Amino acid sequence: MKTWKKLVLAVCGFIFAVAAVAIGALILDSIKGGRIFNDFSTIYAAEKYKEPVRIEGVHLIKQEVSCGYAIIEMLAGWMGESVTEESLLNEYGKVVTATGKQFEAEMNKRFPAYKTTMYPYLSNTEMIEKIYGSLKKGIPVPFQWAAKFGDEWTLHYSLITGLDIGNDSITVLNPYGYEEHLDLASFFERTSFRAYSNMPLFLRLAFAFGLFERNTIFMMERIPAF
């Protein structure tokens, strides 16, 4: 009888410890996520953002395998290379871009002329500064956000190709098959995943334990040729 009591107490203790860790992680994620919501209204009057920026020659790809692979295919086409969703699937036999770090690694593998760096948990103004700077250099910006597939919210990669601060508009190529033009408030609601209503607990925990990130972009910088 004592053995069973010890076992029950051990199991209860384990469950309590796991629950405590999960709750703690969720609280920390909430605090961390809250830091990204700084006031971005000052950007509308900033002289450095007066000129609209847009990348031409990037063709929208409707995903057949995964959004990560579709973004890589879009960028490959823009660069004049032949990487496709199908070629990636044939090479790996699976999707290898499910997390931000995996996507970053695959981008660096596919496009060695560029150094791709993931920037997670940027504040709103930091994200706009980096996006604008990249587009002004003529380089599109892959990023993570919440997007609807039919009526269901999903975690999704898309590609930023334009930013017009004066008209409060950002242009996104969405691999679900369409180009989107959003105001910045709506854009931030989705990059922060606040727009993802009723997010399942397992996904909330995935954010809490660092598998997924909020306000995250992937900056591509040309590597100088020597």
Rank of each mutant, 00 (worst) to 15 (best):
R204F: 05
S186C: 04
F103K: 02
G100N: 03
E129P: 07
V58F: 00
N90H: 12
R214E: 08
K2I: 14
I217M: 03
L89R: 14
T161Q: 03
L89Q: 13
L159F: 04
R204C: 12
T42V: 13
G133I: 08
A105Y: 04
P140W: 05
A20Q: 03
E86P: 04
A98W: 13
A22M: 07
L201D: 08
T84I: 07
K48L: 04
Y176M: 12
F202Q: 10
G93D: 00
I31K: 13
A195F: 01
T191H: 05
P142E: 00
T154Y: 07
Y121A: 10
M79G: 12
E180C: 03
T191Q: 02
I170Q: 02
L182K: 04
N174L: 09
F212S: 14
L182D: 04
T84L: 04
A17D: 04
Y69S: 01
N38C: 06
G13M: 00
F103Y: 07
E221C: 01
S169T: 14
I23S: 14
V141Y: 06
V141M: 12
T84H: 03
T42C: 08
L159E: 01
C67N: 08
L122Y: 04
F226R: 13
D29G: 08
E73G: 02
E47Q: 14
F226V: 15
W153H: 08
